[in-house]
Design a binder for these strands. Structure first.
Lengths: 221, 221
DNA sequence: CGAAATGTTGACTATATTCAAGGCAAGTGG
DNA sequence: CCACTTGCCTTGAATATAGTCAACATTTCG
């Protein structure tokens, strides 16, 4: 912890819609999100965009860029957000600084891999309805875990339907129709950035999630 | 290196089609593949299978399982294969053992993340034709890098069309038709596990890859 | 209040899946 | 050596799923 505090350069506050990291950028900084929402994405030459995952408070940003040199995804904020800024030494020299720190970083990246795999399962094998259900469920769990009421009053989820479409590899129109259908089927709703789920069980059955709902424990940086 | 040799428990040789790691297994061992082909996968409750990526010589297997406790993918061999077996201390205590080792492990996992992201881009945004092209191209590059002739004579790629279909999130039939079409368009071919590419440029243009073709340098374990 | 962004719906089209049938190649046992 | 099986590849036809286009409603924000 003392080591962490020493490496911390400062906190930054950025407005909604900011490009925190460019695609292909070789970043010398690593961030952890303290507050707000963002997403990681890649864009194809023809302009189509794939959102890889959403970034919430506590998540790591820029690890790949620091470790690989330049990574091929960008990061953009969905809301105003605050980040804690570290130098890349946090990762590249972690083992020299603190053995637990270094190990924690590895574990966090491994968790990120695991989340990407679940998403891959969605895009490859799930129907549109299942994809939407899986995304809402996973997002709900993550956001709810950050709230004191554990999501009893619903959670804030600031993605537009276009964002969700780009996450799930579906068209905007089809995403819209599928969300309305899911809403009818399981009484979950996402209106005005507020996600509420009446019957988690019903949604889970539709989603066909791979991992069980066990709360994930992971280190904090 | 001395540390590595000390951690190495033994080498194992497994036949084609073996399940090296079960889905959901909490493994205490970590492997690096020395020779052969394998793939990582997850299965849905309804039986549909998503192949996450292919494992070639030099690749790490089981890092997630060792770091997270239990990870949700399995690993199965496509050919007879040999692995180098390490205890999980390789990862969990890496920083105490050697600072470069610990950092290298992080970098390898970060590369894996990056590869998953490219695959996510395929499943989410690319057409069937583009997906096949991207997979063949990436696989060709990886396999060619392991050969002395750099793939001049083609490379060995032991996946069946069903495997490829499960990798790309397509049906077997559509995969077949698309591969035939791609073969006509770019004069690449995959017959009897032998992948040859006449015109890399043509294939690249179809594939619309995100990352450029720069050879990837990464640490070896 | 008005403009711009986001959400909603229907009709039509394209892409991919499913079903079904047959082909080829490698391996097995008589 | 040859029939026979088995696994994998190939193709066409019918169907389902998702994408595109277009119009309009609603919300958000300046």
């Amino acid at each position: 912890m003392a080591v962490l505090a020493q490496l911390k350069q400062r906190e930054i506050r950025v407005p909604a819609g900011s490009l925190l990291i460019h695609e292909g950028q070789a970043s010398t900084r690593v961030y952890t999100m303290l507050d707000g929402w963002a997403y990681r994405f890649r864009t194809l030459a023809n302009g189509r965009r794939q959102i890889l995952d959403f970034v919430l408070a506590g998540d790591f940003v820029g690890a790949q860029h620091a470790l690989i040199g330049n990574a091929w995804h960008g990061v953009r904020t969905l809301t105003d957000a605050t980040f804690c800024v570290f130098g890349r030494e946090l990762l590249t020299d972690a083992s020299r600084l603190s053995s637990t720190l270094s190990n924690d970083a590895c574990v966090l990246i491994a968790h990120e891999c695991s989340a990407l795999e679940e998403q891959l399962l969605s895009l490859g094998q799930r129907t549109a309805l299942e994809r939407v259900a899986a995304l809402l469920l996973i997002t709900f769990r993550r956001a709810a875990a950050l709230q004191v009421d554990r999501g009893a009053s619903g959670v804030f989820f600031p993605a537009t339907q276009q964002d969700i479409a780009d996450t799930l590899g579906l068209s905007l129109v089809h995403t819209n129709k599928t969300m309305r259908r899911l809403e009818r089927l399981t009484r979950c709703s996402l209106r005005r950035s507020r996600l509420t789920i009446e019957d988690i069980g019903a949604l889970s059955r539709v989603a066909n999630l791979y991992s069980d709902g066990r709360p994930i424990t992971r280190p904090l940086l």
